[in-house]
Structures are given as structure tokens and as C-alpha cells.
Design a protein around this nucleic acid. Structure first.
Length: 224
DNA sequence: GACCAGGCACATC
DNA sequence: GATGTGCATGGT
């Protein structure tokens, strides 16, 4: 089914979300490194589970570059067990720290100085870091102006006819970054608004009353 | 007891 | 390049 009139620009979508949810300026995490760890632990996992894992890491003084460097992978896995996929994620945390050590001398300050595109390419080579995790780290831990695409983004904007078919991660990211100013603060809050809206979206229903976006008569998913 | 959640690597065609 | 599968916990 096609739309017969023009969609509001993405900036207006952002404004509507923001009026509904208020400013988020978001990512739960006290330090940039904690944000990086959270980005890995939350892969395909509810944040409530990640919180338990983060608490365990803190309780064992392991939520730091040094802490993860010195921990054995086995005990790391036990600490992060509540976040699921704990064996894989323990390996991923080790890989992240090894990358920071080997490529940036163990310094986030040095890492932050690397230009966006180069740093993104470096991150994508690290085991366990794919496009979304890389972009979450760049935007939320390092304040780089890059738009994070996630399952909520895909679902919501497909249902509201901004996306058709099954566009790639890159295609969706391009769409947002072409229409929006390259501003880290803006990308930060926009993505936060999308997550907030996504959480209140019922997965199986075309739309929810709470969704501040324009109500639609039917779902746009499944090639409609 | 299914089904799901802020993915990713790897195998296979 | 597209598609399928394993990874694993805790909440609904």
C-alpha cells in the first residue's frame, strides 16, 4: 500500500517525539568506557538484563579498561551472565580492550582523536562489533556525529512508510544523515526518542495509541 | 511454556 | 549479496 500524500520531514518527526517524551540526551552509563561495555552487552538483549551484568562488573571492580584487561575470560563470563550470550560477550569485551590497547595505547583520549570514518572502520574490524555497536560507541561514548540504526528505527519507520522493503543498515543510516544536520547532540537525542517510542510500540499491532507519530490505518510491514 | 529483547559471526547457497 | 543458525538470560 502506498501513501498518497507527502510524509513530514524527519526533523518534524523528531519534534513530535520530543514534545511527547521530553529531552532524553541519553545512554545509561557513567563513563565513556561504561557506555562501550553497555553497547556490547545490550546486543539483542533487554537493558534490564544488562543492568544486572553492569552491577556485577562494578562489584568486582572490573568495569574499566584495566579491570577487563586483568580479568580472566571465564570469570568475566560469570559476572556478565545475566546479560545473556555471556561466553561470546566475555570474548567481545576482551577484544574491545585489546583493540583499545593495541591500536590506541589504552587511551580513550587518543582513540577519540581519530577521525570518524577511520575509527569506524577500525571498530568494525573488532570481533563482536558490528555496525550498530560501532555507531553506538562512536555517538554515545565518543560524541561523534553518526546516526545509530537499530531494530526500533527499522520497525517504526517502516510502519510509518519512511522505509520500503528491507533496506540495509547503511541505506537507513544514509537516509537519516542526508536529511538531518551532522550534529552529535541531535543524533543522540533523536535515537533516544526512537528507542523510547519503540519500547511503547506493541510489536504485533500496527500502531499504539501512545505512539506520538501520525496514526496509520494499517501496517506497512511485510511488503505492504 | 512460548515469545521476545537497542546484534553479530560464521556457514552455505 | 541474501539467507539461515547458534549464542543465553530474564521478563511478559
Amino acid at each position: 500500500m502506498a501513501r498518497h500524500h507527502a510524509l513530514p520531514p524527519l526533523s518534524e518527526v523528531y519534534q513530535r517525539l520530543r514534545e511527547h517524551f521530553g529531552h532524553r540526551n541519553w545512554w545509561p552509563g557513567e563513563t565513556p568506557f561504561e557506555v562501550m561495555v553497555g553497547a556490547i552487552l545490550t546486543q539483542n538483549t533487554a537493558w534490564s538484563n544488562v543492568e544486572k551484568a553492569i552491577r556485577n562488573l562494578k562489584a568486582n571492580n572490573a568495569l574499566s579498561i584495566k579491570g577487563i584487561r586483568e580479568a580472566r575470560e571465564g570469570e568475566l563470563a560469570e559476572w556478565i551472565r545475566p546479560s545473556g550470550y555471556f561466553n561470546q560477550k566475555a570474548r567481545k569485551l576482551k577484544a574491545l580492550v585489546a583493540f583499545i590497547d593495541e591500536t590506541h595505547g589504552g587511551s580513550l583520549a587518543r582513540m577519540r582523536k581519530v577521525p570518524l570514518e577511520e575509527l569506524r572502520a577500525q571498530l568494525l574490524r573488532v570481533n563482536g562489533i558490528g555496525p550498530e555497536t560501532a555507531d553506538s560507541i562512536l555517538l554515545y561514548a565518543l560524541d561523534k556525529p553518526i546516526f545509530v540504526v537499530d531494530a526500533y528505527t527499522r520497525r517504526i519507520f517502516t510502519r510509518h512508510f519512511y522505509l520500503n522493503g528491507k533496506p540495509s543498515y547503511h541505506a537507513i543510516q544514509e537516509r537519516f544523515m542526508r536529511e538531518c544536520p551532522p550534529d552529535a547532540e541531535f543524533y543522540n537525542d533523536f535515537h533516544a526518542q526512537i528507542v523510547e517510542a519503540g519500547k511503547s510500540y506493541c510489536r504485533k499491532r500496527p500502531l499504539c495509541a501512545i505512539c506520538p507519530l501520525e496514526p496509520l490505518p494499517h501496517s506497512a510491514e511485510q511488503g505492504a
